[in-house]
């Protein structure tokens, strides 16, 4: 079983993409859980969301304490939210940043795998303005999910809510991040 912890801020869509990820994993034939950590949820407040992905039925309903992946959707949370707490030593830290892997390693002290990508820039350049979809693409790449499944599921879930034009922009951002993270996994 793989466990993922997302660090974002209320309104950035971290919880939303954690749920989309669960749909993607379901498409792969996995058992899944996706849940947010409920708190005084207000726009801008730090929030956490979690995924569990398994080949077996998932029976546990407790919190996630030692994730395999920690995903930083908002770089300002990198030290304040202590995203590496409990992160498995062989796990992966995925960070939305313009910094290099080495710089993030220095700032967090994390010794495991680090994957960096500038999701803000990717979102901006694609014209969506959101970092959550690029971060979803990055996580899917880190998990080794086939691109076709990721695209299909994002088109299905997001297509219900947004225009065709905006959907295409999101797919562009998703793909750019997926590729960037793939390169990061191979390199880092």
């Amino acid at each position: 079983m793989k466990e993922i912890r997302w660090h974002g801020r209320g309104g950035q869509g971290a919880k939303t993409v954690s749920q989309v990820l669960a749909q993607i994993n379901l498409r792969e034939g996995k058992y899944v859980q996706a849940f947010p950590e409920f708190g005084p949820e207000r726009s801008g407040a730090p929030i956490r969301a979690y995924n569990r992905i398994s080949d077996e039925e998932i029976l546990v309903h407790s919190a996630v304490y030692s994730p395999d992946l920690a995903v930083i959707v908002d770089e300002s949370l990198l030290t304040s939210e202590k995203p590496t707490d409990g992160l498995h030593p062989d796990g992966t830290l995925v960070v939305n940043t313009s910094c290099s892997t080495e710089e993030i390693r220095t700032r967090t002290g994390f010794k495991g795998k680090i994957v960096v990508l500038d999701a803000d820039r990717i979102g901006r350049e694609a014209g969506t303005g959101f970092a959550n979809i690029p971060m979803l693409g990055a996580v899917a790449a880190v998990l080794g999910t086939a691109w076709s499944i990721v695209e299909e599921e994002v088109r299905r879930t997001m297509g219900e809510r947004i225009s065709k034009e905006m959907l295409d922009k999101n797919i562009t951002a998703l793909r750019a991040a997926y590729d960037a993270a793939k390169k990061g996994v191979a390199g880092g």
């Binding site: 770089e75 300002s76 990198l78 030290t79 940043t97 313009s98 910094c99 290099s100 710089e103 700032r107 500038d118």
Partner: peptide, 10 residues
């Protein structure tokens, strides 16, 4: 000003 601490953005 964006709150990113120690950002490496150019």
């Amino acid at each position: 000003v964006p709150e990113r601490e120690g950002t490496c953005a150019k």
